[in-house]
C-alpha cells in the first residue's frame, strides 16, 4: 500500500512536468511567430541572399518547426540552451551568473519579507480592527498600490540622495565580500520587500481570521491561553495552506517579476539580461529566459502544493 501522500506528491510533480512541457511549446511557438528573420537580424540589412540562405541552413531554420522544437528541447534537456546570436556567447554560462544574482536578490528579499509578513499578519489578527491592524493594513495597501519603479525612485531620492545611507546603483562584481554584496543590494531588497509584503500579510490575516471562527479556537480560549498563543499555536498551523500558496506566488514574483526593479537599480540580474536581449531580437536568449522563468514559477507553485498537502494532518496521518 503506497502512502497516500506519496501518491499525491507524485501526481503533482508529474503534472508540473507536463505543465513545463506545455510552457516550452508556447515559448517556442511564441518566439517563432515573432516578426522578423533571425538570419536577417544577425547579418544585417546589407546581407546577400546567398549568405542569408547559408546561415539559415546552418542554424537549421529551414527544418520544419516540429523538428526545430525537438532539437531545441533535446538541447535544453542536456543543459545546452544554445548560443546568443548577438554576441555568440554560450547562453547557459552567461545566464548562470545572471540567474545567480537574481536568486541572491530574491533570497534576501524573501528572508525579510516572508517572516515579516506573517508576523505583521499575526499582529493584525491580535489587534483586529484596532489601530495597529488599521495601520498595518493601510501601509501595506499603499506599498502594493504604488508602482515599483515609483517606489524605487522615491527610495533612491530619500535613502540614497538625501540621507546617503545606501548606494543608488546596485552594482555587484566578483571578489566582493558577502557584507559588501548585501550593502550593494539593500535598495532593491527594500523595494521588493515593500512590493510583496502586502499580499502575504493580508492573506495571513484573512486565513487566520477564518480559522479563529472555529470551535477549537474557542476551546483554546476556554483553556485560558493567551491571545498570542492561541493565534500562533492553534490558528496558524491550520492556516498554512492558503498562506503558503500566496507566499509562493510572491516568491515566484521575486524571481520572474523583478525586471523593472533590476532596471531601476542597474542590477546585473535576469531581468536586465532579458530586457537587453529582447531589444536585440536575440531569440535563443529570450527562449531560454522564458523557459527558466516558467520553471521557477511552476516549481515554486508545485512546492506550495506539496507543502499544503503535507500540512494537512488527515493526509499526513491516515486512519
Amino acid at each position: 500500500m503506497v502512502h497516500p501522500i506519496l501518491k499525491l506528491v507524485v501526481q503533482r510533480v508529474a503534472l508540473g512536468i507536463l505543465l513545463l512541457l506545455a510552457a516550452s511549446v508556447l515559448i517556442f511557438v511564441g518566439t517563432q511567430i515573432l516578426p522578423g528573420d533571425v538570419a536577417q537580424s544577425i547579418l544585417g540589412q546589407s546581407a546577400t541572399p546567398v549568405s542569408l540562405a547559408n546561415l539559415r541552413a546552418e542554424l537549421g531554420l529551414n527544418d520544419p518547426p516540429v523538428t526545430r522544437y525537438f532539437n531545441w528541447l533535446s538541447g535544453v534537456l542536456q543543459g545546452d540552451l544554445g548560443t546568443a546570436l548577438s554576441n555568440g556567447q554560450d547562453i547557459a554560462t552567461a545566464m548562470g551568473r545572471r540567474l545567480g544574482n537574481t536568486l541572491f536578490l530574491a533570497f534576501w528579499a524573501a528572508i525579510i519579507a516572508v517572516p515579516l509578513a506573517i508576523v505583521l499578519g499575526l499582529i493584525s489578527v491580535r489587534y483586529r480592527d484596532r489601530w495597529p491592524d488599521k495601520l498595518i493594513s493601510g501601509v501595506t495597501l499603499a506599498t502594493i498600490s504604488v508602482p515599483e519603479f515609483l517606489v524605487g525612485y522615491i527610495a533612491v531620492f530619500f535613502l540614497a540622495v538625501q540621507l546617503q545611507w545606501f548606494p543608488s546603483i546596485a552594482s555587484v562584481y566578483d571578489g566582493m565580500t558577502l557584507g559588501e554584496r548585501l550593502y550593494a543590494i539593500s535598495m532593491p531588497v527594500i523595494v521588493l520587500v515593500l512590493a510583496v509584503l502586502g499580499h502575504m500579510m493580508r492573506m495571513t490575516r484573512a486565513a487566520i481570521l477564518n480559522v479563529m471562527q472555529s470551535a477549537y479556537v474557542e476551546t483554546a480560549e476556554l483553556k485560558g491561553l493567551s491571545q498570542f498563543t492561541i493565534i500562533a499555536r492553534h490558528a496558524l498551523p491550520n492556516a498554512v495552506a492558503p498562506v503558503v500558496n500566496v507566499v509562493m506566488l510572491n516568491l515566484a514574483y521575486l524571481v520572474v517579476g523583478v525586471v523593472v526593479v533590476e532596471v531601476v537599480f542597474v542590477y546585473p540580474g535576469m531581468g536586465q539580461y532579458l530586457v537587453d536581449h529582447v531589444a536585440k531580437r536575440d531569440v535563443p536568449v529570450v527562449q531560454a529566459c522564458g523557459l527558466v522563468f516558467a520553471a521557477v514559477y511552476i516549481g515554486l507553485n508545485l512546492l506550495a502544493d506539496v507543502i499544503s498537502i503535507l500540512a494537512n494532518p488527515r493526509l499526513r496521518h491516515p486512519k
Binding site: 472555529s214 470551535a215 477549537y216 474557542e218 476551546t219 483554546a220 492553534h234 498551523p237 491550520n238 500540512a311 494532518p313 488527515r314
Partner: peptide
Amino acid sequence: AQSAAAAFNPAK
C-alpha cells in the same frame, strides 16, 4: 463541548 470533533485542533 458538544462536538469534540470540532473542539479539537485538527493539526495537533
